[in-house]
Design a binder for these strands. Structure first.
Lengths: 255, 255
DNA sequence: CAGTGGTCTAGACCACTGA
DNA sequence: CAGTGGTCTAGACCACTGA
């Protein structure tokens, strides 16, 4: 059913995760199917139960499997929606929607941060920031207007890179070893002003989604503030929400 | 630092989760602080390391702690945003925004499901559904217009309940033992038509956020389809996105 | 009752970081 | 190098479900 290589550099529990992921994604395991019991699987794979459970834990929290105490563990009825949460670059986002992505740079310059921007980036007011404004195209048509602010200090010599052809996130990762891992977003509904409408090729006052995002690296430092206007007629946001059970503060008096 | 009761019904690892949660929430542990090493903590609490790690795993995935291999485990710089993800009822949502919530029922009736609605609820077309339309008020002012569709079959005798005063979700949980755990949402930007604008007390064509949601129980069955129009001038959506690392399919040939 | 998942132990060895 | 987190083992006993 699943094969593991005990001498691989990849931990066993991750190999098991991958194995189930593929079985479920390929349809070999269907929603509602029970997987073998933990003890049986352990014996078959010649591994310890705690190791197996580490894999199943992740699969459960990612919504692929559902454990039922006293019964078995089952494949979840919810089909896999890749990256429905997590965050993506515009390019990845378009790719996931089966569209091709490209960019037109409108502005690309160094600026002094206004106080509101500085606050979002957690840098002193009037510090230097890199400002990048791009029209993002999907299948050659304007889809979004994106305005990015980066702390200049974190990304020296960034003006060597041309973001009409290069991915911003890829550049941050590959050239600056900067890995964004968490982002805080607000989503609003607005009407476009004349300049914005023109860049997006729609009429003034057309509705749009305004997404403001602060992106942070693994240490919690702000690496980017970006706000993006998406054409309401061509873009919607999709996301999955899960009830959090980490905080079932039901108290110790339960049972 | 943290106290546990080995004889409590609440598992030790959850007690430790709670302990750190409170220490961080209360400010006793500040962002960037290192927590004691796992071995030290185990000795102090007289527990096994795997048990401690179960707690820290959850704290890390909930964004409260950050492990650094070779160093220590640190309190995350990102402050706790309660329920920023996960989903909330309108009442909880308003409470988290420090506003009081109330409702005005506009329609509450049985209907035959149109095909589009039936598809979202995964029931046969023309099946019976309960339709509930409410204006949701925050601090007595209209904030949102909510239209809920429930499969009648799942909730017999639901018309005994009055949802101008009762919470829908609480009723589903307490009266029908139905626990929604996952929801799929799309978010769009629209302009209100005349009827909607009137109910929300704004002028025609005002911008609004349209959120469509399918809510599912733990088995993946649809229990609710709801679409909600939020006044753009009074409501924005806040959410946190994390890069998913469960699927770092970097392959076993790494390193 | 037999079988399932849930929790926990007391070790082991590895890979990584900074001094 | 000593100290940290990362992975893994081979057991144990508990709580729950359905027959």
């Amino acid at each position: 059913m699943i094969k593991i290589d005990k001498h691989s550099d990849r931990p066993i529990y991750k190999q098991i995760y991958d194995g189930f992921f593929e079985l479920i994604e390929s349809g070999a395991l269907k929603p509602g199917d029970a997987i073998p019991s933990e003890r049986d699987l352990c014996e078959e794979l010649k591994i310890s139960r705690m190791t197996l459970r580490a894999a199943i834990n992740q699969l459960e929290r990612d919504g692929l499997l559902i454990r039922k105490h006293g019964l078995n563990t089952f494949v979840s009825a919810t089909r896999i929606v890749k990256n429905a949460l997590g965050f993506m670059s515009f390019s990845q986002d378009m790719y996931s929607r089966s569209m091709s992505a490209s960019s037109k740079v409108i502005r690309y310059e160094e600026r002094k941060a206004e106080e509101s921007i500085a606050a979002k980036l957690s840098i002193p007011a009037h510090s230097s920031v890199v400002y990048l404004e791009r029209v993002r195209l999907a299948n050659q048509e304007p889809m979004a207007l994106e305005r990015v602010y980066l702390p200049t200090q974190l990304f020296p010599e960034i003006f060597n890179f041309d973001f009409s052809t290069h991915s911003l996130y890829e550049t941050l990762e590959k050239e600056y070893n900067c890995y964004p891992v968490i982002a805080e977003e607000t989503i609003e509904s607005v009407n476009l002003n004349q300049a914005e409408a023109e860049l997006l090729g729609v009429t003034e006052k057309s509705p749009a989604l305004l997404v403001k995002r602060i992106t942070r690296d693994e240490n919690g430092n702000s690496v980017e503030y970006v706000n993006t206007l998406y054409r309401a007629d061509r873009y919607r946001i999709f996301l999955i929400r899960r009830r959090q059970h980490g905080k079932d503060h039901s108290g110790s008096s339960e049972k």
